[in-house]
Each structure stands twice: as C-alpha cells, then as structure tokens.
Design a protein around this nucleic acid. Sequence first.
DNA 1: CCTACCGATCGGTAGG
DNA 2: CCTACCGATCGGTAGG
Lengths: 215, 215
Amino acid sequence: MTTPETTPKVGTTEDPRVVRSRAIILAAAHEHFVTHGYVGANVDLLAAEAGVSKRTVYNVFGDKETLFRAVVERAVGIAERFSRELAEDFGADAGPGTLEDIAVRLARSVLSPRVVPLRRLLIGESRRFPELAREYYDRAPGLVMRTLAGHLAGLPGLAVDDPDTAAEHFAFLVLGAPLDRALFDPGTDGVGAPDDLDGRARTGVAAFIRAYARR
Amino acid sequence: MTTPETTPKVGTTEDPRVVRSRAIILAAAHEHFVTHGYVGANVDLLAAEAGVSKRTVYNVFGDKETLFRAVVERAVGIAERFSRELAEDFGADAGPGTLEDIAVRLARSVLSPRVVPLRRLLIGESRRFPELAREYYDRAPGLVMRTLAGHLAGLPGLAVDDPDTAAEHFAFLVLGAPLDRALFDPGTDGVGAPDDLDGRARTGVAAFIRAYARR
DNA sequence: CCTACCGATCGGTAGG
DNA sequence: CCTACCGATCGGTAGG
C-alpha cells in the first residue's frame, strides 16, 4: 500500500487535525447557539470563541445550518447515552428506596445545565427545525419515559395498570414544576440545583407511592 | 378649548386611527414573532402581513424591541385575565367532581394554541429577555398555581399539608406530560387538544386524589 | 402610505 | 500537490 492505515488522508474525517477542529467547534457552537439561538448566532463570533478561523468552520461544516444540526445531533447523542445510563439503573429488583434514588438522579440530570439550555434551544427553534425537536424528544426524554414505564410495571408493592401513564405521573411529580420554572429562568442555569431539588424529588416520590401503592 | 375632548390629537394614543393600527399590528406581530422568534422576525414582512406600511409600524412602536415587548405584554395580560377567570372557578365549596372540571379546563387552557406558542417564544427568548419570561411566569402560571394552592388547602376529604406542593402535583399530574411534549411539537398546535387531553386530565386527578385523600 | 435609501451587519467565499 | 488557515472582501439583507 502507498498509504498505510496509520496515515489517514488529510482533510478527511479521519485527519486528526479535522477531528480536533470538529470537537472544538462543536463545543463552542453548542454554547453559542444555546445563548443566541439559531438566527441570532454569529459565525464570526462563534469561530472566535472556538479559537479557529471562520474559514475552518466552513471547511469542516459547510454552512451554518449544517453546523447547527451537528451541534444538536451531538447533544442529543449525549443526552441519549445519559438516558440509557439512567435507564440501566432501574434494576428490576428495585425497592422503594431505589425509587427515591432514581427520582433524585432523574431530577438532577434533567435539571442540569447541560439539559435545560438544550431544551430551551430546541423548543425555541421547534418551528424552524421541527424534526430536530421531535428527534430529541424521542431519543432522550422519550427513552427515559419508556424505560421508566417498563420498570414501574414490574415493581412489587405498586398497582400499575397503565405503565406509560404511571411513568409520566412519576416523572412530572418528581420534576415537573422545577423544570417548567427553569425553562423560563436562565438565571439559575449555572447554580446547580434550583430550590431544594432533591427534596422536591423525594416529595414527588412520596406522592407517587401514595397514588400507586397496592392497597 | 381649541381641541375638544371628542377630537383627540392626531398621532397620539387616543387617535382612533392609531388605536386601530396598534391593534392590527399587535395581532399580526404576535403571530409573526411566535413563528420566527425575535431575531428571525422581519419588520417589513410583519408590516405587510398586518396590511400597513413599515413606516406605520415604526411610527406607532418606535423600534423592533418595543414592538416585541408590547406584543408580550398584551399576551401576558390576556393570559393573566384568563388565569384569573380560571381561578374564580375554584369555588370554596368545590367537591371532587368540580376538581375534575377544573383539571379539564386547566389542561385545555394551558394546552391551547394561544398559550403553547407564547410559552415557546418566551422560553426561546428567555436569555435575551429574562424579565419578560419571569414576568409571564409570575402573572400567568404562577397566578394559577397560587390560587390553586389556596383552594386545595380548603377542600374537604383531602389531606393537604403543603398547599404549594399539592398545587404543583395537581397541575403536573393533570397536564405535565402533554405540555412538555407540545412544547417540542409545533405540528399539533392548530389541532385542538393533543392525544386525549381530557382523559389524561381526569386520570391525573384520579392519581392526585389517591395521593392526597384523607385516610 | 409608499418608495427609496442609509449605516451596519450578516453568511459565505475569494486570493494568498 | 494537498489541505488548513488567515486577512480581506464579496453579494445580499437586516433594522431604521
């Protein structure tokens, strides 16, 4: 061979320089889009924030829309992986104590500074990019909800007729109110958990158990 | 007097032509901003949609940001009045049947094509206009929540230790899941209630009563 | 009310 | 020769 496997062609996806540029730009673009929205985003500024030239941005991503979609795809992929991890913790042998742990973990992840700004962006751009918003919903919160439904159905001590509804009730008892408020309040983004998030999650679980306990 | 009360000065707020223009522009601008967001909004297009010249828009509202704030103030005012109406229906003598009625009305109003797009807009612009987002939250959902808390506390047959938490649990059991989905899905805006909204509201009430019934 | 037009800024691309 | 990247500038459109 003239080109050994250890020397990928320059400029391609395998080129380590392009790989590095991609990663740097995606991280900066995520922050930038989340702050300014799609139309309000400025590729010049964004490139500066990423520490690369605008030309590099266009070389790697082609245009603004492609960059935006790449940012969202990456974020959705991360959210999906996180949802999967969360889902794996819903062990079939889970007791009521574990239900509380799940609630706290669920609340902390969804109310995290990674998730809430992404939600704001996708909600705000849902008219411009409806498929992206729908895709996020299916792959992240939808995945969590489906897994939650599956495991709630198998929990001893609970009377769950409709697992999907029970999962929704669980999730929104645990984090509905704080999430709704957080969507409207960017001021609380960096400061970890708003209010007493863990306490509200536990109060939600208590209400859920009262509503769904086998009697 | 040189200017009788029945003949307001031209160009002022009292001028019937300006009043009419204001109303027409506000209605068109609401639809336009909700569709395109603040930055994506085009004043030329917006004026054309309103059937007025761009010059008239600037004569009445000064600039794009002032127009945006006027649109939001008006929408928040409408939402506030609606919330107040809803609140008045929480009669102190309300029984469990009335709780179901309240739930259905609540779900229908919040999931309405007036409220959901406004929520999307304010969430999407919450970084650019944080006070507007907060103001909406206080004056509309916050008002409903506070009234709900007050009335739930007085309901016979229920054991409500923390009225604020109970109100949040009630509201998000009733409409949390459909609202969250609706925010990400503009496709279902015009088509009245998504899924079986009334049924889900009633299922939520049932869960709420199981969780909060005096025992 | 309309057309015309301004200063500024945008996304995207040229040459080096 | 190719690609990555920079300074400079393009056409077109934004708010006003």
